[in-house]
């Protein structure tokens, strides 16, 4: 078996106020796949994703990007080459308000990757084009719709050419119309471009159409893990059945 794009082993995390959030989660994302994390609110999906994105330190467990250790317990790598392996898209786009759409996508390739301004600009334009947002290049974030903003945020993450793109419910702040717009872009990226992706989502249509594998979280544990076929099978896990019934 080849080295997975991303692997997390026995991650544990607890918050002083809310107690154990992750209780030994193991995630394996193969190359060129889309992996979905599903579960009810408060099940620990977002925390798991933030740990995978190295934005939180796990209490225990390890995270590997293409076989290279990125986190070993609370020790998180500071190596920019390692950190660059993951890109992240949040529930809110969190665009930088002082820059245009193009500037948002341009900044990290120029400042972090050290590309010269012109090269970074070319890359930013190409990436905006991939999310069909090139016509928005000169707009300010406050001049964009929610869906447009989220597409620019996706482009911003993609411009860094991460090994894995982590998406934390990227449409939860959007209405159904805009949700379709953003999900279409993600689906396209996943199916046509073969981008490795981990998506936290409630959107079962997206999971069914675009995801290759899925983990179902409940109370900080991964209850069911496997190909998306598990979603069609009832009786594997009572909590999963209840979750699927509701959604």
């Amino acid at each position: 078996m080849s080295t997975p794009a991303l692997e997390a082993r026995q991650l544990r995390k607890h918050w002083p106020q809310s107690g154990q959030v992750l209780d030994g989660c193991t995630v394996r994302v193969e190359r060129r796949t889309v992996h979905a994390l599903i579960g009810a609110s408060g099940s620990g999906k977002s925390t798991l994703l933030r740990c995978l994105g190295l934005l939180e330190r796990p209490d225990a467990g390890s995270i590997l990007f293409e076989g290279v250790t990125a986190a070993d317990g609370p020790v998180v790598s500071n190596d920019p080459r390692v950190r660059r392996c993951v890109g992240m898209v949040f529930q809110e786009p969190n665009l930088f308000p002082h820059l245009t759409a193009l500037g948002n996508v341009w900044l990290a390739p120029h400042r972090v990757l050290g590309l010269d301004p012109g090269e970074a600009r070319e890359r930013a334009r190409m990436t905006l084009d991939r999310v069909h947002a090139l016509h928005l290049a000169d707009r300010r974030p406050d001049e964009l719709s929610g869906g447009e903003r989220q597409r620019v945020a996706i482009a911003r993450a993609l411009a860094m050419e991460p090994t894995v793109l982590l998406c934390d419910e990227p449409t939860s702040a959007l209405d159904p119309m805009l949700t379709r717009e953003v999900m279409a872009v993600l689906r396209e990226l996943a199916l046509d471009a073969g981008t490795n992706m981990v998506v936290v989502t409630h959107d079962m249509d997206f999971v069914a159409a675009a995801a290759d594998s899925v983990d179902f979280l409940h109370a900080g544990r991964i209850r069911v893990s496997g190909s998306t076929d598990v979603l069609g099978t009832r009786g594997l896990d009572a909590e999963l059945d209840r979750f699927l019934q509701r959604s």
Binding site: L54, L55, V86, F90, L95, H98, A108, V112, A157
Partner: peptide, 29 residues
């Protein structure tokens, strides 16, 4: 907002770069 730091951190900005290119240009306003 903390989320600006998150977005920068996810893009690989160091804290120093985040301050210089993302936080200070906004706080200055």
């Amino acid at each position: 907002p903390r989320s600006q730091w998150d977005a920068a951190g996810a893009l690989g900005f160091t804290p120093r770069q985040t301050l210089r290119f993302i936080v200070i240009p906004q706080s200055w306003r």
